[in-house]
Amino acid sequence: MNINKLSPDENYPMNLLLLADPSQKLVEDYIKRGECFVSEIENQIVGVYVLLPTRPETVELVNIAVTESMHGKGIGKQLVLHAIETARSRGYKTIEIGTGNSGIGQLALYQKCGFRIVGVDIDFFIRHYSEAIYENGIQCRDMIRLSKEL
């Protein structure tokens, strides 16, 4: 598997980005301000993540997604670890990530990669999304904020 940064003139894998964030408007907004990386296997894009500088010495992993047929193969973990190393190599001191309260698998993955829960943004998904989001039979209401010192 190869992980490469897309240049601004390349097409972004919007179908994958929308798996992690159903708001095309929000995705288009942060994709302009961040850096998009894709993972490829045999010239097929199977994963994506976006790093977005937020404050001095801090970057946020704002979107990470893997093609559904490739779930459970460790690609998500490789993407998270690549994002951590990319942030570290660019001199960032902290990497942050937010995920929905209903993302049980994501919460486990991020903590296995060294992230710690630092806060909860109550009703984030109620305020910012017009339609209810359900995952694992749970309504996604709150943004769980995690952070890792680099």
Rank of each mutant, 00 (worst) to 15 (best):
N2P: 01
N4K: 15
K5C: 03
N11R: 08
M14G: 02
L16I: 06
L18M: 10
L19I: 13
L19Y: 07
D21V: 06
P22I: 00
P22N: 03
V27C: 08
E35P: 00
C36M: 10
E40G: 04
I41V: 14
E42G: 00
N43K: 12
I45Q: 07
G47L: 04
V48G: 01
V48A: 09
L52K: 15
P53N: 09
E60N: 11
V62Y: 13
A65W: 06
V66H: 09
V66Y: 10
T67N: 12
E68Q: 11
E68M: 04
G72E: 06
Q78T: 07
V80A: 06
V80G: 03
A83F: 12
A83C: 07
S89V: 10
S89D: 14
G91E: 11
G91T: 13
I95Q: 08
E96F: 03
G100M: 09
I104C: 00
I104Q: 03
I104T: 11
Q106P: 00
L107A: 02
Y110R: 00
Q111M: 10
Q111W: 05
G114Q: 05
I117R: 12
V118F: 08
F125Y: 15
I126L: 12
I126H: 02
H128P: 11
Y129G: 07
S130P: 13
I133H: 09
G137I: 00
G137L: 01
M143I: 04
K148P: 06
L150T: 09
